[in-house]
Design a protein around this nucleic acid. Structure first.
Lengths: 233, 233
DNA sequence: AATATTATTATGTAGCTACTTAATATTGTC
DNA sequence: GACAATATTAAGTAGCTACATAATAATATT
């Protein structure tokens, strides 16, 4: 049974993954070397290498030089999320996007904000509070701090017309990004601004970005009750 | 200035990413073709291909046959999360892990649970409620449904000794996985079981897995107040 | 002018060789 | 027996060729 159609590396990957799914290979088991698998499947080592590399990236197998490849003894669920800008998220749900600036002003950062940006001491930064709307109703509240030393141009932008998020995305690419997901109960201020009951459970996303070592911005995005972040692997 | 040390594909990737970071290339701009970049950088097209492929996977650039490669006009934040089993998460935080079964019994699934598993009608499944502990205190409450038609062996497992999660991870690999993150307020039942105030904002992770088309399990994991899911890209 | 056909182009993939590197096993020496 | 030096192994990387494929541009046909 050496059917030799053209095997793509994805086919090879799925074949190998199949050995795990059907129990031929269990967590901890070691595979024969790439070259032997290649011979057995009738493809080149490069193709097996690509397939195994992909499985390793997905957290399904573990590879070590000389040590060979084995099924991960403690498999992890590895998920990839795309965090879109608010406008796209609203439009993808078929809604009409709206944006509303609450305030933008220079303020001294509280300590925790400075810490999130890897700064030792509080400094003066641009704080921007804004609402993103879907069909005229609040979709997302964002509380952002922009490090004006890295991004002085932000001070010339009319933030009542364009969201700081979109401006930054298009004008200040980042090389490092830090994300926190958490749940938070609405306090009085949030409840008032977002139009929800005080105490409502809100999904919160904190994102901090850098360009090299230079901090760009940190933002807390508070979602409406019932919001779900979804992915399928 | 054609320094020709050995350039790895990662170096090439970082070099190209650098063109975006320093503003030489802005969102929407098109790169010259791989081959020309290769010539310019003194490496082979294969290396540029690998580098560009990686940047495309990360959501930094967009590639299309014939169309060439361009900087993504609307960059997304793409993050990869590893969702470990509770034991590892507790141990990684330097705590002592504990596990406590609340109940395991055959029950008819509520409609939403059946729907999560892509089943049209409710069926009888094994429901497992359990607590994962850190240093003797609740860390995580899980409410799980296991599709016994796909995983009949689960019925022979002593779930008071071993968590269903760990057993499944080691004995029933999945090929597809669905994840939802959300925030939920503690109701009376959750508050009682987890020892938190009613109304507390809780971080919730729903995970559903399949092996091929066969549903395996769906689980709702409710984290203690203050829990944060973190990643750095 | 509108449509269908064909050619061109840039990325995608498969396979090859050769060399590098990290981890382990073996051997040699004290 | 303990330790250091050396050999071996299997994955990782770089570069090459050749061909496949999808998208677009150019051309021919009606």
């Amino acid at each position: 049974m050496t059917i030799t159609k053209r095997r793509s590396w994805q086919d090879v990957r799925d074949e190998i993954h199949g050995w795990i799914l059907d129990g031929q290979m269990a967590p901890g088991d070691r595979f024969e070397r790439d070259e032997d698998i290649a011979t057995r499947l009738g493809c080149s080592r490069a193709t097996v290498q690509r397939a195994m590399g992909d499985l390793a990236e997905r957290g399904v197998v573990e590879r070590r030089r000389k040590g060979g490849t084995r099924v991960r003894p403690d498999p992890v669920t590895r998920a990839t999320f795309d965090i879109p800008i608010a406008r796209h998220e609203v439009e993808a749900r078929g809604g009409v996007y709206g944006y509303q600036l609450i305030q933008a002003a220079l303020e001294k950062t509280p300590r925790p904000v400075a810490a999130a940006l890897d700064l030792r001491a509080p400094v003066e930064m641009l704080r921007v509070e804004a609402l993103h709307l879907m069909d005229g109703r609040v979709f997302l509240y964002e509380d952002r701090w922009v490090f004006t030393r890295t991004v002085p141009e932000i001070l010339t932008v009319d933030l009542s017309a364009e969201s700081a998020n979109e401006w930054l995305v298009h004008n200040k690419p980042y090389s490092a990004c830090d994300l926190h997901f958490s749940a938070q109960a609405a306090d009085g201020y949030l409840a008032g601004i977002m139009g929800v009951e005080a105490g409502a459970a809100l999904f919160v996303l904190n994102r901090t970005t850098w360009s090299g070592d230079a901090p760009i911005t940190t933002v807390k995005a508070v979602h409406m009750p019932g919001y779900r972040m979804v992915t399928r692997v």
